[in-house]
Design a protein around this nucleic acid. Sequence first.
DNA 1: CTCAGTTTGAAATTGAGTTTCAAAACTATG
DNA 2: CATAGTTTTGAAACTCAATTTCAAACTGAG
Lengths: 143, 143
Amino acid sequence: MDRVSVFNQYLRTQGLKSTRQRMIILETFLDSKSHYSTEELYQLLRKDHPRIGYATVHRTLKLFAECGIAIELNFGDGQTRFEPHYTEHHHDHLVCTRCGKIIEFVEPRIEHLQREVAERYDFTVDSHRHELYGRCVRCSQDS
Amino acid sequence: MDRVSVFNQYLRTQGLKSTRQRMIILETFLDSKSHYSTEELYQLLRKDHPRIGYATVHRTLKLFAECGIAIELNFGDGQTRFEPHYTEHHHDHLVCTRCGKIIEFVEPRIEHLQREVAERYDFTVDSHRHELYGRCVRCSQDS
DNA sequence: CTCAGTTTGAAATTGAGTTTCAAAACTATG
DNA sequence: CATAGTTTTGAAACTCAATTTCAAACTGAG
Ligand SMILES: [Mn+2]
Ligand SMILES: [Mn+2]
Ligand SMILES: [Zn+2]
Ligand SMILES: [Zn+2]
């Protein structure tokens, strides 16, 4: 089931309404490059939809996270970021602390060792966060 | 070189002064259990040193992080936490989202794969963050 | 000790995130 | 379509950790 359907079904089951704003925000969120903060997505939306308020963007992104079509990210820059949730391909991130570039990586062997570590402590994992901070190729070359 | 010396040398090289407050905060920080937030360490300090202000605790913890004797942690509860930096034994964390318990783990094979991933993208890693969120043994039993 | 520069602590400010509330928008029913 | 009962919206207010401000206190080189 695609993300639009998941969201609409979530709205229905929660007794929430399908509104023009929610649909526009959903479309824009899914089409846009990933890792947007609320403020960034709000600014992007303002170009075509200047009537949509910041609070609505914020509330809608929270709804996306609640129904599982978005993931909240935090790269330590003081802003929560969101990305569409790809159930098929979980990934983690390399974050360039100079230019802000974000590279996604997939490493099943790390995912596996994670589960092994959790077992070692009889810990039930709901989610995890794995980020490497440093310099991307470009940024490690110049100075 | 022990952490007290590292801090004092950092103060000297930066033209900063060694003060009563900074020494008390350093001692308390190193003696205390780890993963304290600024507020928590401030409350702990207040028992024996009610004159030390929150701003000073905050500024001093930032100094610890700057000179490398402390690491800033963020477990997504809206408070920055600090722990002494153990150069010898790097570890990552399991965080119980129910009771707040923090378990430290060491897994060299993950550290190694991390370096491999970074190389794959010609990325120079300065630091990383790896946390597993879920339920500790106790908390997964009583639900 | 003296004094310029630094630090301190209380209070003010910042900024992302969240909540409030009256007006607008939905949707189920008649 | 009209109406009524909810829910949603957007601007503004609020929250709270983090940070800054500033006058008074402290530090340490001379
Ligand atoms: Mn991503
Ligand atoms: Mn730790
Ligand atoms: Zn870069
Ligand atoms: Zn627990």
